[in-house]
Amino acid sequence: MEAQKPPQYILEVFADPTCVKDIVRGVLHTICFHRYFSPIRPSYLEILDFTLPVIPDPDVETLIDTRVGQLIRQLTSTSSPKSSIRGSLVVEFFEKRKKKGGGLGWFGKGDEEVCWESWCLEVTLATPKTEIERTKVTKAIGSTLQKTAMKIITIVNRDKEHIPPLTQSETNLFPFHIELNPRVEGWGRSIGIY
């Protein structure tokens, strides 16, 4: 577990400027919903006639909204002549492990966070210019969102073995981070212990 490279799932997200925020939020919430194992009273979002689960946790919502806002800003600031713009978000889930007493731990006996799963959202922003395009795009957005949600559910259901054991259910065992364009920013994490 420890040494293995955590699985990364790639999700394609397709949206237009009018709904990109909701779409990305919905996908992020859906991912987190399946990885937030402490007891929750689930809620859900209505996005484009789709209902996506949400964890009514202020911290989670804040983090997601913040990252989505950053992504939107990046996408909209791009003066790309292309009809579509791309951006990406990576969601990583960590488990806290007691630093195994190996020799020189910088953090001494502190805990370390080990990523055990990551999700990469490849966001494609389409800017339809004609009614026909708009119709097509709207249709594509809906179907893409549906597929994405189903993909998440399928993956979550299928791959359970890599999920770290749950030692308790009172608090969220697995902190997560959302990175914007990780390659650009590098591997650093906002909170990561690194």
Partner: peptide, 21 residues
């Protein structure tokens, strides 16, 4: 058992989400 229960948690989460799709 804990392992099964954990899987159960995952399952019910996905069930909850899937029901709404």
């Amino acid at each position: 058992l804990p392992h099964s229960y954990k899987d159960g948690i995952v399952f019910f989460r996905s069930l909850y989400a899937y029901l709404r799709l």
